[in-house]
């Protein structure tokens, strides 16, 4: 991600939900227990040996602080029940976040400090979380936000401003502990939802601001938008991000053509059809192809295209990681 070609293609799972489920942590309580989370990553590092140790802040934490409620199914991702802000006027009533009052943020800071101390020298400590504009759709609700993009653009800007400020307050201690990468999502900006014009008009400036802010602390910035982002990938690269994390439906060779060599690509194995439902051989084949297309001259991290379902078999994760360590040496010769 610093430019230049590494010894081999790096690989990262960019998901904690899968790792926690696989190592027996309940997703509803996992994020409160720093020691158990660190223990689990120690186990993952021992058993799988990926290049990145992922510190994560659950998608529910910041929105919950403001009052959003969730349902936690036995397997699968948390479901938003009631958003904190149901009407525009409720945004003004929110008090800005105070991390000292949030148990899960405190656990995340302790867990992060432990990871940086233990793995900081040998591994990349990769902080991953839902970004401020994704959180905005969880402080309100996606459909309401979509309506406001048309009818109440000023409210959307206020909401984004508030959410970016909250995010910076929550994430600052994590940058200060010295993580290597900050990887955040900006999911509602996806061309699956909104037009590229709207992305440029409402999202882009905030994404750029967040990336510049991450750079002030010396960390690398990666950001993710779900879906087929080809139509906005150039804009995404112009934010100054070091890496763009891309979904499986995006044609990586076209993406590379659009953004040039400066920005790294992170991805883009299909989490559902390959990692969850495929065989290890499918995963190996898809990984080899992804490395060849995305990483022929560096600037590539092999990773899942989006969050990994907790039900994905561990042999498949192992197959992804082993393919990078066995065949990913530069120059690629297979």
């Amino acid at each position: 991600m610093s430019g230049g070609i590494p010894d081999r293609v790096p690989v990262s799972i960019v998901s904690s939900a899968w790792v926690f489920s696989t190592y027996g942590l309940d997703l509803q309580t996992a994020y409160k227990d720093a020691e158990r989370m660190t223990e689990v990553w120690r186990g993952f590092n021992r058993d799988f040996g990926a290049d990145a140790i992922v510190l994560s802040l659950s998608s529910t934490v910041i929105p919950s602080y403001f009052g959003t409620t969730w349902k936690f199914p036995k397997s699968g991702f948390p479901l938003l029940m009631e958003p904190a802000v149901k009407e525009m006027s409720e945004l003004e009533e929110l008090q800005q976040i105070d991390p000292s009052k949030d148990e899960q943020l405190q656990a995340c800071y302790r867990h992060g400090t432990q990871l940086v101390e233990e793995f900081g020298d040998e591994r990349c400590v990769w902080f991953m979380t839902t970004g401020p504009l994704s959180n905005a759709a969880r402080i309100t609700e996606t459909e309401f936000m979509m309506e406001c993009l048309i009818e109440e653009p000023d409210f959307v800007r206020d909401l984004f401003r508030f959410s970016v400020d909250a995010w910076k307050i929550a994430v600052k201690p994590i940058l200060e502990m010295g993580v290597d990468v900050v990887d955040f999502s900006s999911s509602p900006g996806s061309p699956d939802l909104i037009s590229p014009r709207m992305y440029r008009e409402f999202f882009w400036e905030f994404d750029r601001e967040v990336i510049q802010w991450i750079h002030e602390y010396g960390a690398k910035a990666v950001f993710h938008i779900c879906g087929n982002t080809l139509r906005i990938i150039e804009d995404m690269a112009k934010t100054g991000a070091n890496g763009l994390s891309i979904d499986s439906m995006l044609d990586m060779s076209l993406a590379r053509e659009a953004i040039g060599k400066k920005t790294a690509l992170v991805g883009n194995l299909d989490p559902a059809n390959i990692l969850m439902n495929g065989t290890p051989d499918d995963v190996i084949a898809a990984s080899l192809e992804a490395m060849k297309i995305g990483g022929i001259n560096g600037g590539f991290v092999l990773a899942p295209g989006c969050d990994v379902p907790p039900t994905c078999p561990r042999e498949n994760i192992a197959a992804m990681i082993n393919t990078a360590t066995e065949y990913g040496g530069y120059p690629l010769t297979y």
Partner: peptide, 11 residues
Amino acid sequence: YFVPEILMSAK
């Protein structure tokens, strides 16, 4: 049209 536009038409 994208989701916000189609959503407003639906409304």
